[in-house]
Design a protein around this nucleic acid. Sequence first.
DNA 1: CAAAAACCGTACAAGCATGTTCGAGTTAGG
DNA 2: CCTAACTCGAACATGCTTGTACGGTTTTTG
Lengths: 209, 209
Amino acid sequence: MTAHRSTPTPAKPTHSKPSQAKQPRADARRSIAAILDAAIACLRDDPSASLGEIAKAAGVGRVTVYSHFSNRAELLQAVLDETMRRSHESLEDVDLSGAPTEALTSLVGASWTIVDEFRAVLHAAQRELPADAVHDAHGQVMERLRGVVERGRSSGDFRTDVPTDWLVTTVVTLVHGAADEVRAGRFGMDEAAGYLTSTVLSALAPRSH
Amino acid sequence: MTAHRSTPTPAKPTHSKPSQAKQPRADARRSIAAILDAAIACLRDDPSASLGEIAKAAGVGRVTVYSHFSNRAELLQAVLDETMRRSHESLEDVDLSGAPTEALTSLVGASWTIVDEFRAVLHAAQRELPADAVHDAHGQVMERLRGVVERGRSSGDFRTDVPTDWLVTTVVTLVHGAADEVRAGRFGMDEAAGYLTSTVLSALAPRSH
DNA sequence: CAAAAACCGTACAAGCATGTTCGAGTTAGG
DNA sequence: CCTAACTCGAACATGCTTGTACGGTTTTTG
């Protein structure tokens, strides 16, 4: 039984504090990173990819995976955490202070690159992990979107004849659908991005009728 | 090797023609129908449900399944065909001759009941069947939707600043998303139906700006 | 440079899903 | 009623995946 790191987050060995938790060795950190990357890539293609496939894609032995993650479930949890971390990293720089329509456009545009991998991982985790862990993750990421939507409703930029939850769902659904189309090769990425923002704004616009 | 019916469609023994293809016996037809129903129900909950589960849910032995479908793939194909048949049956009565917005509303409303089972089956088949069979099915069902959308673009009821394909995708995506929400229990069925049609119409409306 | 840490491949046990075979029981239908 | 069709359960072979164990080799790191 070697060290099992269920929290691979301490990626910064910046000589911070003399905490008693010793850093794993350099090659171990490299392996973990490779496994996580490979897992995300594999699960994107096949949500039920085997540990063997992931190990091979990562360029490590299958046993090595078990030396870092005792379970498949634990690996999945780590992958979920890592994906969440990347999402936050990508989205925290987005400026949401402008007009709601601007903010929404920015947010959708920034979500664009991460939504497909996030969704694939989420989908893979959803069937093998306790539901609460998944739900926490999802809710946390959607918080910002929800804030923008609520602000737009107050300012009169977005419609109020349907609930906020519905609007949030609409945006997320459209982003997912657009990602699917691009992945299927039916639309180019830039092309779809333009259509998507335009469609989202129309869907959230107040009923002119 | 018993009779393998890859086309379970002749469900009507209406003394039609003295074709040389003899009808399977009554209990066989009953079993096939039970298996198909159970398969649809099981795959809706778990896209990778095992043959054993399906057989148990159908109330037949596992071997019986193999006496009607030589493969898992063949069963999946039959399930896909059956689901398609039901979809057509539900949609062929929808009147699309009115105004495009009316027609779209009717179509979305009628799709509502079948879309979740159809999608689950499609999703299950997508990973185990040749891509062309799946694509044919999907395209055939979307034909009517596409017609309505094109008509609405010509009449000026729907926007033309994005491609027809994109609008079709948008509608399908929103319907799927709404079905998910209902399935997850976050919205009631009637409630979601209203929000859905409202959102779809907004998304397809011409840019007033 | 040497010890500790991490790596590798192979092998093994258990579990599950897919197909197949067999023999015996049950049911439909002429 | 009697035969052919159908169903059933159990058993077996196969292959894939998970998780564990062992011994040998490479890489860090102090």
